[in-house]
Design a protein around this nucleic acid. Structure first.
Length: 462
RNA sequence: UCCCCUGUAGCUCAGUCGGUAGAGCAGUUGGCUGUUAACCAAUUGGUCGCAGGUUCGAGUCCUGCCGGGGGAGCCA
């Protein structure tokens, strides 16, 4: 017999049709004549109610086993509910307890748990309302990302996880080696990486950008969407050691096209989630962050503010606000400044461009003033920076000069420089932290609660 | 890595001036009721994060370590 998802069943009228549902018991409420069992199978936030008469054959044997957490397979008739909270319910014909769940040991109770506690039981937390909703929204957003780019002719490029270049420059890297760590080969006192698996130092990628540029300068519009690793000792609600990043890269595109793409992209994803996950989004709106849905509609309906770094500095100075870090042209924007610009001054997403070259990466295109580069950061209220991108330097000599100025080893960049030597073209792209976007969409406070198994400093239990 | 807060029952927390431990929820038992985080009653449950120290006596005061949270830095 076909197994129906709870989501499917709740969309039906309940004309007494025979149905089958498989899932986990969330609650059981007993009444004189009947027991009410709420079953959830993860297909949606709602449970389906099973109404078991106490005359049900064998009820006495199964009654004590129908407890929170047990997995069940139930066949029965779908009928309109007599209760108010649900449209339909199942009158069972057979009830199979697939897996028992000892009620005195099961950590999940039918009450609200703290997210800190749930992190300690990461193997069970997907069975809660919040984590089910987070994962369904995460799934919808993943799909929307591919849909957005595919509809626009982008090619999905799988950039490598293991990288030999330590020149990506975006942070501390995890080492990859097959050395026996108790017997590391040495050559004149130094570690002899020539004997390691790849014959040179290897790490986990901190960004697919440089490789994405290679493919953009052949396929024109590409994007990556995959895991990224940073070995930073950062301990905040916005950082993970392993996270997912989206990095589009477009040839024959300047910073303005890049900004348009970033804005369209965010609005598309938000629209898709609001359309496809209304139940989960209502849950976040009422239980996690009041007003989050209206905020998202606000973002979709309004143009992002675009402002240069220099003008942003002027705005901050004009605000006369007493910042912990004093505002001065040339400094990097601190969290407090970013949150003030987006949350207080404009009250909507803001794209800040043309930062001083000293505070940005070597590959960003130098402006004619010689002082600023064509960087763009998208700042959103509450979170701050969600996207970092730029038009890339496509002039061979300017890029080489910048590499030398910064004391980087130009030999490490030979293939990257080649791109500017052979048929160079203006190109631009950006990186977006997927989990931060999920935080923004759901209102979840801690990034560790929007990824199935968070990897952070000092934590690797699951 | 830095600053601040915090660690007491399975969970969420209270515990006064230092005098040997408490509530709600969950579990268990019983009752009631087409219930909706069901309700009512009884009841089980503690090496007070760990290790030292002060004291006649430490959940409470002091020191160190460990875990958790918030903020900062770094960044996405």
């Amino acid at each position: 017999m076909k197994v129906n998802s709870v989501k499917e069943l709740l969309a039906l009228e309940g004309n007494g049709e025979e149905v089958c549902v498989e899932g986990w018991i969330r609650t059981k409420r007993d009444s004189k004549e009947v027991s009410f069992i709420a079953v959830n199978d993860g297909s949606c936030l709602s449970n389906i109610q099973i109404v078991v008469s106490k005359d049900f054959p064998g009820f006495d044997e199964i009654d004590s086993r129908l407890v929170n957490g047990a997995s069940v397979s139930i066949k029965g008739k779908l009928v309109p509910s007599q209760g108010k909270e649900q449209k339909v319910e199942i009158i069972p014909i057979t009830i199979d307890i697939v897996g028992d769940c000892p009620a005195d040991e099961y950590p999940l109770q039918k009450k609200r748990h703290s997210f800190e506690f749930l992190r300690e039981i990461a193997h069970l937390r997907p069975r809660t309302n919040t984590f089910g909703a987070v994962m369904r929204v995460r799934n919808a957003m993943s799909f929307a990302i591919h849909k957005f780019f595919q509809e626009r002719g982008f090619v999905y490029v799988h950039t490598p996880i293991i990288t030999g270049s330590d020149c990506e420059g975006a942070g501390e890297m995890f080492r990859v080696t097959t050395f026996d760590l108790n017997k590391i080969p040495k050559n004149e006192g130094n570690i002899d990486f020539a004997q390691d698996f790849f014959g040179k130092e290897a790490s986990l990628t901190v960004s697919g950008q440089l490789e994405a540029e290679v493919y953009a300068l052949a396929l024109k519009k590409v994007y990556t969407f995959g895991p990224t690793f940073r070995a930073e000792n950062s301990n905040t609600s916005r950082h993970l050691a392993e996270f997912w990043m989206i990095e589009p890269e477009m040839a024959f595109c300047d910073i303005h096209g890049n900004m348009d793409m970033a804005e369209d992209f965010i609005k598309y994803i938000l629209t898709y989630v609001l359309d496809s996950c209304p139940e989960d989004m209502n849950f976040f709106n009422s239980m996690i962050e009041k007003g989050v849905v209206d905020n998202l509609y606000n973002i979709i309906e309004n143009k992002f503010e675009r402002i240069t770094y220099s003008d942003a500095i002027k705005e901050l100075e004009a605000s006369k606000k007493d910042f912990e870090y004093p505002v001065k042209w040339g400094m990097d924007l601190q969290s407090e400044h970013e949150k003030f610009i987006t949350g207080e001054i404009f009250k909507k997403p803001v794209i800040v461009t043309d930062y001083p070259k000293e505070i940005k990466a070597f590959y960003m295109k130098l402006n004619d003033d010689g002082k600023t580069v064509r960087a763009m950061d998208v700042l959103v209220p509450r979170l701050g920076e969600i996207i970092g991108g730029s038009e890339r330097e496509n002039d061979y000599n300017k890029l080489l000069k910048r590499i030398r100025e910064l004391g980087l080893n130009e030999e490490d960049y030979w293939w990257y420089l080649d791109l500017r030597k052979y048929g160079s073209a203006p190109h631009a792209g950006f990186g977006l932290g997927f989990e931060r976007l999920i935080q923004f969409v759901t209102g979840m406070q801690n990034i560790r609660d929007v990824i199935p198994f968070p990897r952070c400093v000092g934590t690797l239990e699951f």
